[in-house]
């Protein structure tokens, strides 16, 4: 379970990247975080894998609390979380296989095990044939599938996807969403931040709406959220 209690984040002297966030995310849920650019979605996600620590309040992720977490524990926490980024964060001059195997190499797994896990995952995302190719030679959609495979190598309890379709065309975006849905179907929690309302409009998942560093209250959320979807779709 992930819990935010009165969490605020200030970047340097700029206050209010996040303001008094109170949230609870249950295990096994597929949750969508929606909101315009700059609303604080990415900051919220970075708090979960403790890339930043809150300026105020506490974030609890499983047994770890931001209140007293050591750098060593942050590493352990990150090994239990899969993260997917808009810009994929692949090492471009490494092969696809090496990129996916990196989390396992970090933990010192044996070569045989690494090979088995990575090949299974590459097969699942439909890129087994690309294992020896450099990451830089892949299309954007393929890169995101590699990033998802990498996020799954250590069988995380949650996959965090920060605008995973932000750089992709419609078909590739749908592929990515369907991959995340399959991951969720296998019992892993998924937390996806997006402002691609069109892509997720028919999905049944829990939605959290954010604006100006705040989570909008549930009773207003649906209305405001629906209005916003229409508004943004019109503008686009």
């Amino acid at each position: 379970m992930i819990q935010f209690s009165h969490v605020t984040v200030n970047y340097g002297y700029v206050p209010g990247a996040l303001k008094d966030i109170n949230l609870q995310l249950r295990d096994g849920d597929f949750t969508l975080i929606l909101g315009p650019t700059g609303s604080g979605k990415s900051t919220l996600l970075r708090l979960i894998y403790m890339d930043i620590l809150p300026s105020g309040g506490v974030v609890k992720v499983g047994k770890w609390s931001s209140y007293r977490i050591t750098p060593r524990q942050i590493n352990l926490l990150r090994r239990n979380i899969g993260v997917v980024f808009q810009d994929f964060k692949l090492i471009e001059n490494m092969s696809v296989f090496d990129n996916v195997s990196l989390p396992l190499v970090i933990e010192g797994y044996r070569r045989k095990y690494v090979k088995r896990v990575v090949n299974t995952l590459l097969d699942e995302v439909g890129l087994l044939h690309c294992g020896d190719q450099r990451a830089s030679t892949l299309s954007l959609g393929e890169k995101q599938r590699v990033a998802i495979a990498r996020a799954m190598t250590r069988n995380p309890f949650i996959v965090i996807a920060d605008e995973p379709t932000g750089n992709l065309d419609r078909e590739a975006s749908e592929n990515v969403l369907s991959l995340l849905q399959r991951i969720h179907g296998n019992g892993t929690s998924v937390l996806m931040a997006t402002h691609d309302y069109e892509l997720i409009k028919d999905t049944p998942y829990k939605r959290i709406y954010m604006e100006n560093g705040q989570v909008l209250p549930p009773d207003r959320t649906m209305n405001i959220g629906k209005q916003r979807i229409r508004l943004l779709t019109k503008q686009e």
Binding site: Y49, D51, P71, R72, I74, N75, L76, L77, R78, R79, V83, K89, L90, I91, L102, P103, I106, E107, R150
Partner: peptide, 16 residues
Amino acid sequence: QRQIMIMKILGSGNLL
């Protein structure tokens, strides 16, 4: 630096 950042996010220890 990009690789270092990625490895940190993936939970790599400093020594590695």
